[in-house]
Amino acid sequence: MALRDLLSRTTLLDRVIVLVLFAAALAGAAWAAVAPGGERLVAESGGKIVFTAPLGADLTFTLPGPLGETVVALRGGVARILDSPCTHKVCIGMGGVSRAGEITACVPNRLLLRVEGGRGQEAEYDLLTR
């Protein structure tokens, strides 16, 4: 009854505006629920962010640390350390990082790289023990 009364007091344009707004709100909520965030590579040194780039970028860059410069490649959505002035080069052997939450680091050169944002794929594991 109330709805009929309400409708009788609105014009066609009012109804179209309300419908469009309602549809837009629903679409927005649906998009918020399913759309992936932008994944990015974040580099930290001494606990501070020193570099960020979209994970999809194609570039090679250097990051300074206490031992010298660490070379990082970002290619095909995978970031990996190519070279570093540390003794054991463990960081080079750690492989690449590509999904949200993954970390690689050159500990002696105090550099930490991690993938942030995005919702990530359902991974095979949450954490790696090594």
Partner: peptide, 16 residues
Amino acid sequence: AIILLLALVIVAAVAG
């Protein structure tokens, strides 16, 4: 009425 409906729409979006 329109303000009421708009408010409902916003609440629905925020809730989503």
